[in-house]
Amino acid sequence: MSAASPEGDLAIHTHRLTKAFGQRKVVHGLDLAVPYGSVFGFLGPNGSGKTTTIRMLLGLAAPTSGSITVLGRPMPSAALEVLPGVGALVEGPAFYPFLSGRANLMRLDAANRRADPATRARRVDRALDTVGLGRAARLAVHAYSLGMKQRLGIANALAVRHQLLVLDEPTNGLDPQGTREVRSLIASLAGQGTTVFVSSHLLGEIEQMCTHAAVMSAGNRVAQGTLAELRSGGAGRVRVNTPDGPAARAVLAGLGLAPEDGAGAGTLAEGGDDAVVRAPLAAGAPEPERIVAALVDAGVRVRGFAVERPSLEERFVELTGEGFDVAQ
């Protein structure tokens, strides 16, 4: 994982951040380091503490212990200086249903003392156009679909130019086009130098738009780093296609590897009499070329050999557990 960076390079930095509701620890000793200019994916299954963490980052909830620095200032104590630089979408959009989309944004902009009232109408209209709501701007929000509300929530985060965007599940409820638009929007904002902190339980989303990510599981951060670091973090495996299954297993075991048993291990591949033998590449395992040499030396007929790296999805499941139950 990435080495600890000096605080000055980090848009968000938390140290041993913990939040407990009564006895229940929702976030446990979280260390986050979000570099300026990154698109940082905050990944984790439902109930893993993502939204609670975001609430603390934005000063909506106070940490039980630990410290938070956002844009170089402590949170929540410096919230009024920090928040004008932060655009946010937290736990879904929320609006006054009887006001129009435009009126909703005007009200929230009026709440921001640093936002210039003279340019308010222009900035709000531009933000509405950016998310494709220009034509629905004067419709009451109760007539909006979930996806339109989501777009309006994103427009709210865009009405003022921010240094940092915190987007909690930004593509929730969006149709495929909307999802793609959000992704390209995030990319273009990042291209202009905005740091984007985006939470999601959708791995594909993170994989497609992020430069960095952290993975949460049951209130703990189980991984953090650049996407490349995260992918390589998991143990690779060697795969040998050979008609001499037992011999290959013996050679691998002799090299200190532990060939896998059970389904798929040593079974016949389709359309041939080759067995497929797999063994995880633990730290300290011999280089792949030495494994091949050893196999060939031992007379194993190697018909296929590969080093398999886990996909991010496999890593994600590996880190957060496979179960469907919401973590408690």
């Binding site: 000063g59 909506l60 009024l80 937290v90 929230l108 709440a111």
Partner: peptide, 14 residues
């Protein structure tokens, strides 16, 4: 109840 409280505070309104 409406959820707008968090957005007012994030605007930010003190």
């Amino acid at each position: 109840g409406n959820g707008t409280l968090r957005y007012l505070l994030l605007a930010p309104a003190s």
